Amino acid sequence: MHPETHLALHHTRAAELRAEATGYRLAAVAKRPRDLRTRLGWTLVEVGLRLAAAPRPAIA
């Protein structure tokens, strides 16, 4: 294969991989905080409900 052709193919493939990686990164960044925020929110709700509930009598 001619060196310039090989180099052109290399640059094209590298650009494709960069674009693909950027797409995955953007999708991951967009998805993660929402999942984390949802889990954290429900955990805080659960903790708040446990703190607000009347304590159960201890069984001896």
Rank of each mutant, 00 (worst) to 15 (best):
L7K: 07
L17K: 06
L9D: 10
L36P: 05
R13L: 13
H6I: 14
T12R: 15
L44I: 12
A15N: 03
V47K: 09
L7I: 12
A60E: 10
A58N: 10
L7N: 08
G23Q: 10
T12C: 08
E4K: 09
M1R: 14
A21P: 01
A15I: 07
V47G: 02
A60D: 07
H10W: 15
E16D: 07
R39A: 07
K31Y: 13
R25C: 03
L9H: 07
T22R: 12
R32Q: 06
H2D: 15
H11L: 12
A27M: 02
L51N: 05
A52I: 02
L7Q: 12
A60R: 15
P33L: 00
G23T: 09
E46Y: 10
R39H: 10
P57T: 06
P3M: 02
T38Y: 15
A58D: 13
R25H: 08
L36E: 13
R32C: 05
R56T: 11
R13A: 09
A53G: 03
R34I: 09
T5I: 11
A58W: 10
A21W: 02
V45E: 04
E4T: 08
R18L: 04
L7D: 15
A15S: 07
E46I: 05
H10I: 04
P55L: 05
V45G: 00
W42G: 04
D35W: 15
R37E: 10
A60M: 11
A53M: 14
W42N: 09
R13G: 03
L44K: 06
R32W: 12
E4A: 14
H6L: 15
R37G: 08
I59C: 09
R13S: 06
G41V: 04
A58S: 11
L51V: 08
L9W: 00
A30V: 01
P3C: 01
L17D: 09
A28K: 07
E20F: 00
L49W: 14
A8R: 12
T5S: 13
G23W: 02
R39W: 04
L40V: 14
R25V: 10
H10G: 07
K31F: 14
L7P: 02
A8L: 02
V29M: 11
R39C: 05
G41T: 14
A30Q: 02
A19C: 03
L7G: 05
T22D: 13
A58C: 07
L36Q: 13
